[in-house]
Amino acid sequence: MNAEKSELNNALSLQQEQGIKQFLTFIMADEEYGVDILTVQEIRSWEEITELPNSPDFVKGVINLRGTIVPIIDLRLRFGLSSAEYGSLTVVIVVKIEFEQGSKIMGIAVDAVSDVYSIAEQDAKAVPSLSESNSCEYVAGLVNVGEKMIALIDLQKTMNI
């Protein structure tokens, strides 16, 4: 617990002092995506969930997380990617997202967790507009890390159901 607080304090310190954010990255359909590590509450292995009737396809259901009912979103389906079988590498990243109405705890199902990167805000590039309807509305920016490109996710837009 103290190690988690120390890591959180280090992340906050880096953001304030140098404009550097830390991102937890994960894999979906052989591509790497990232979310601000300060939104991540915990990472859980895949478990059975309770399905909700009449919910959108990408809302897989809910889990009970220590007394809190947490909706689980399949990010592959939310992004319009092909669905995949849930397996031993599938994880749920539990995030806390701030909305105008207040904060919400939600889970996102992804293929696998990858790494944590420290990224300077000025290194993130805007997503090029491909058409009049912005099909990349869930991506806040793109950043190169070594030889790979990571799409940084805008969780507020992605999770606003």
Rank of each mutant, 00 (worst) to 15 (best):
M1H: 12
M1E: 14
A3D: 08
A3T: 10
S6I: 13
S6L: 09
L8M: 03
N10R: 15
N10Q: 15
A11W: 00
S13C: 09
E17N: 15
G19T: 05
T25E: 07
M28P: 05
D30A: 05
V35R: 11
I37N: 10
L38M: 14
V40Q: 08
E42D: 12
I43Q: 12
R44H: 12
S45H: 12
I49K: 03
E51C: 00
P53M: 02
N54K: 06
N54A: 07
S55F: 06
S55V: 09
V59K: 08
K60Q: 15
G61W: 03
G61V: 04
V62W: 06
N64E: 06
L65Y: 12
R66N: 12
G67L: 10
G67H: 10
D74P: 05
L77G: 07
L77E: 15
R78F: 00
S83C: 02
Y86D: 07
S88W: 10
L89I: 06
V95M: 11
I105S: 13
M106A: 04
I108V: 13
A109H: 04
A112V: 03
S114T: 12
D115A: 12
D115C: 01
I119S: 14
A120Q: 13
A120L: 07
Q122H: 14
A124D: 04
A126F: 09
P128L: 11
P128C: 13
S129T: 11
L130D: 08
L130H: 13
S131E: 14
E132A: 09
E132K: 14
C136V: 06
A140M: 09
G141Q: 06
G141M: 03
V143N: 13
V145D: 04
E147I: 05
I150W: 00
I153Q: 05
I153C: 02
Q156T: 14
Q156D: 01
K157A: 00
K157C: 01
